[in-house]
């Protein structure tokens, strides 16, 4: 499903070139549950952004679902993101002035879905994440766990094939974190491809596959229950 070959991503920091990704080869099959770990600045977020088409490769190639997406234009990338990829961020990134339902509705609005169908899908996804009674609340009226659940609902409302989560529990207390992980794993067991960047060894131990990244290269690739 995801196929990276000799993937490099260089940044220019002043006069110095930083290799955030340095020749990464990676294959991820549909339905996998991958945890990406590594020290700060190792390039794990960059890898996630590359996979999520939020960032572009400096060198190498990227095939998504058998299509080469390395050289797509910005607008084509936007379309692919809209249709196949869902994001969950550490800091939720909800639009503060919109209600939970309106935040979830956002990707559908951008996708040009008719109002009636949007309504139904938003209701359904809020219901399944236990947020039906919070639909009209703004993000600042929700707890951290609820906010992250709204963010997951927003990522899932377009029914993407891949969900990318960047430290989804990094900003949550323990019990909310567990709740969120439980939701993500349930989605994965229903066939969703799930990639999670995390610092938390307990969380990474739950994944079927664990990638460890140091200095932009994959140093460990373990499979099976940790």
């Amino acid at each position: 499903m995801i196929c990276l070959r000799s993937a490099c991503r260089d940044y220019l920091m002043g006069t110095q070139t930083v290799h955030a990704l340095d020749g990464v080869d990676l294959d991820v099959e549909a339905g996998e549950y991958v945890a990406i770990t590594g020290p700060s600045g190792s390039g794990k977020s960059t890898l996630l952004h590359i996979i999520g088409l939020l960032d572009r490769l400096s060198q190498g190639s990227y095939e998504l679902d058998g299509d080469d997406v390395t050289h797509l234009s910005d607008d084509e990338l936007a379309l692919v993101r809209c249709e196949t990829i869902g994001f969950v961020f550490q800091f939720f990134h909800l639009v503060p002035r919109l209600s939970a339902a309106a935040n979830v509705e956002l990707p559908l609005i951008l996708g040009g879905i008719a109002a009636g169908e949007r309504e139904e899908r938003v209701q359904a996804v809020l219901q399944s994440f236990g947020l039906a009674d919070r639909a009209d609340h703004r993000p600042d009226q929700l707890s951290g766990g609820q906010r992250q659940r709204v963010a997951i609902a927003r990522a899932m409302v377009t029914k993407p094939a891949i969900l990318l989560a960047d430290e989804p529990t990094g900003n949550l207390d323990r019990s909310s974190g567990k709740e969120v992980i439980h939701i993500l794993e349930t989605l994965n067991s229903d066939g969703l491809t799930l990639l999670v960047v995390t610092h938390d060894p307990e969380l990474s131990a739950r994944a079927n596959r664990r990638l460890h990244i140091v200095d932009g290269a994959i140093t460990k690739d373990e499979r099976g229950a940790g």
Binding site: G52, H93, L110, R154
Partner: peptide, 16 residues
Amino acid sequence: TAEIGLLKALGATQHR
């Protein structure tokens, strides 16, 4: 800017 970034991540084109 963050909102614009979010819209892009959610699949909005630059034009939109």
